[in-house]
Design a protein around this nucleic acid. Structure first.
Length: 603
RNA sequence: GGGGCUGUAGCUCAGCUGGAUAGAGCGACGGUUUCCUAAACCGUAGGUCGUGGGUUCGAGUCCCGCCAGCCCCGCCA
């Protein structure tokens, strides 16, 4: 209820200014404007919102908090707009002012949203009411070429996608960038190996399918580690590639294409859309980074390498921490690439993306790195005022033993096999249930439900946890039918679809809604919190806020569903309850969609 | 040695500009189905919010110290 809340906030400020004009003027002068401290209550018995300002003002005003509260309430009730939104405010406890939204106002709000295909979520605008056109970049997923996607890419891909979806829905122009590792020293050995095992691939088109890239990578690494001659030729190959040698370039492109095709299978399955723009894209901008930092006198030669020493961050020996921009052999490394990327992304078109906000979704192990790089970009004045670059870190994926997730033999878990297992388990569970309930379903139904539940469970388990902390991966927990899981949420949607199948129509929205039961009002109020949840995700980039909301909505809905009949209700009660079902299913479908999880009609 | 993150019920986790009695789920114990998918709902038990200070009318939340765990720390990304 962002709009109602904003109106209330305005009325509260007005009331404060009228009740205590001197103190408010003083607050303005001192740069600390007096805030009504309007917050949502945590307990329904205190109404919907509460004003906490009275307690804080006791010192400034030298009055008892309840007296201050009385003065605020007096001013509030004089105001017509306030009176049209809230019942008369109540002073409670040491000086809280409890506000309750009028039921007719809640119904009005609900009807507005029922008729709005955006469910009351506004499009993002600037302060003066214009649409925001500058893109927001979300940099996520970022696997390495010639390697398979593994569990380490899971969180970035899922969290990044959800953040991008929420921003897109709010109307932002979102550029989803896949900053793949497609450059660097490892390509020397890969190209070298390719040339020796499949030279025909470099002369004919589509001559070869490398097939198992992981195996290919492993074999070339083995040779690199054991064969001096091979190692030497690999180093030369890196130079060839960087100098733009056509054959090396062709080999490189071939490897990239192979990887890209493999990645795409996973992205298709996860329904994640990405624009590939690998590290190599920034090659031509690297030298400028060095030159410009040098011109700004930020570069220092140390031990043969050219570095920027960070301010306020000490490394070993109590010396400022150095970030290497150019290696002693003249090569660049990842800090250089990231700096070039920052410049390109923030530079206006056509020399850049002209982004207003750049979001990096990577594991928290890179926090130090981004801290350093952002500081350098800032000191070089490469971040125009009003533009934001932010690291969105997330914790490790751990097994149920609390250690980094590995296979039993200690290897990294492939993303594909992880998804397969989730889907297989969902299928097994579904078949068992069908048998128990003596239901017959087609194979295509079983496949669809298993895939949706399995993949949805993996995504939801990840998203529903605060991303900052490490995340304990458990198939049993994510696929559980109870608790804060994808199956529980999916089931609520299915229940509503069941009502429709049994003769309830959600097609027409009644002009008048009538609610008499507590369970109905609880659901109304919960439904109206959706915009707050979306707002939270956009501001704090925490998708778990949306998950928590959807979960709570399901709990409130299930209580309603369990305790009140819908189809057997009479007259306006039936149509009003159907309207609640419609709003609930619309909210769940949209909410799940913003998490990247499709819903089902039956399961 | 330096830096970052985390520490909340037996377990996994929420806790939104500091606000009233710290919330879920799992697990445990007990109850509910002639009724829209019981894949649900209701109830009981379970917490000195790592620890010691400080700020505040008020601290799980902010500041400082300490303890524990995880991660990172110049020529890989």
């Amino acid at each position: 209820m962002i709009n109602l809340r904003q109106k209330l906030e305005r009325q509260c400020k007005l009331a404060l200014m009228r009740a205590f004009p001197k103190a408010c003027d003083g607050g303005k002068l001192s740069g600390k404007p007096i805030n009504p401290q309007l917050v949502r209550t945590n307990n329904p018995e205190f109404g919907d919102y509460q004003i906490n300002a009275a307690l804080q003002l006791t010192k400034i005003l030298k009055k008892a908090p309840r007296d201050i509260a009385t003065s605020i309430v007096t001013e509030l009730t004089k105001n017509e707009e306030f009176a049209s939104i809230c019942d008369s405010p109540k002073i409670a406890g040491p000086g809280f002012i409890n506000l309750t939204i009028k039921p007719e106002r809640l119904i009005q709000e609900l009807i507005t949203r029922l008729e709005d295909n955006r469910l009351g979520i506004p499009l993002a605008e600037t302060n003066d009411g214009k649409r925001i056109t500058d893109p927001i970049i979300v940099d996520f997923s970022s696997p390495n070429i010639a390697k398979e996607m593994h569990v380490g890419h899971l969180r970035s891909t899922i969290i990044g996608d959800s953040i991008a979806r929420v921003l897109e829905f709010r109307g932002h122009n979102v550029l989803r960038l896949n900053h793949v590792g497609d450059w660097g020293t490892q390509f020397g050995m890969l190209i070298n190996h390719l040339k020796s095992v499949a030279p025909e691939a470099l002369t004919k088109a589509n001559a070869i399918d490398i097939g198992d890239l992981v195996n290919f990578y492993r074999k070339s690494k083995e040779r690199f580690d054991s064969d001096n001659n091979f190692r030497e030729r690999s180093r030369e190959e890196v130079v060839n590639l960087q100098n733009g040698d056509p054959t090396s370039l062709k080999a490189w492109k071939l490897l990239c294409k192979q990887s890209r095709d493999e990645f795409q299978k996973i992205y298709d399955r996860l329904d994640v859309r990405l624009t590939e723009r690998g590290e190599s894209f920034y090659n031509e901008y690297l030298q400028d980074v060095v030159d410009d930092l040098d011109a700004l006198n930020l570069l220092v030669k140390d031990d043969g390498a050219r570095c920027v020493f960070l301010e306020g961050i000490l490394g070993k020996n109590n010396k400022p921490l150095a970030i290497i921009i150019q290696k002693s052999d003249g090569g660049f490394n990842y800090a250089t690439t990231d700096l070039a990327a920052i410049r390109y992304r923030l530079n206006p078109s056509p020399k850049g993306d002209g982004a207003c906000r750049v979001i990096y979704v990577t594991d928290s192990g890179q926090s130090n790195h981004f801290n350093g790089v952002f500081q350098i970009a800032d000191r070089a004045n490469w971040i125009p005022t009003g533009k934001k670059i932010e690291h969105v870190p997330f914790g490790l994926v751990q097994g149920e033993d609390g250690k980094k997730l590995k296979t039993r033999s200690g290897e990294t878990i492939k993303l594909k096999s992880l998804l397969d297992e989730a889907v297989n388990r969902a299928e097994f569970d579904l078949r068992r249930r069908l048998k128990e309930e003596d239901r017959k379903e087609s194979e295509s139904f079983i496949k669809l439900v298993s895939e949706t539940v399995g993949i949805g469970a993996v995504k939801y388990a990840d998203l529903s946890q605060n991303r900052i902390t490490n995340y304990q991966f458990s198939f049993d927990k994510m696929l559980a039918l109870h608790g804060n899981t994808a199956p529980y949420l999916l089931y609520a949607v299915v229940r509503i679809a069941g009502i429709v199948r049994k003769g309830g129509s959600l097609a027409t929205i009644p002009k008048q809604l009538e609610f008499t039961e507590k369970q109905e009002w609880d659901l109304v109020k919960e439904l109206l919190k959706f915009d707050d949840a979306i707002n939270d995700v956009e501001e704090e980039l925490l998708p778990n806020r949306l998950c928590n909301y959807l979960y709570e909505l399901c709990q409130v809905f299930n209580r309603f569903y369990d305790q009140l009949p819908v189809l057997k209700a009479k007259g306006s009660s039936k149509s009003s309850r159907l309207a609640l079902c419609l709003m609930t299913t619309n909210t769940l479908k949209l909410g799940m969609n913003l998490l990247g999880i499709p819903t089902l009609e039956r399961m």
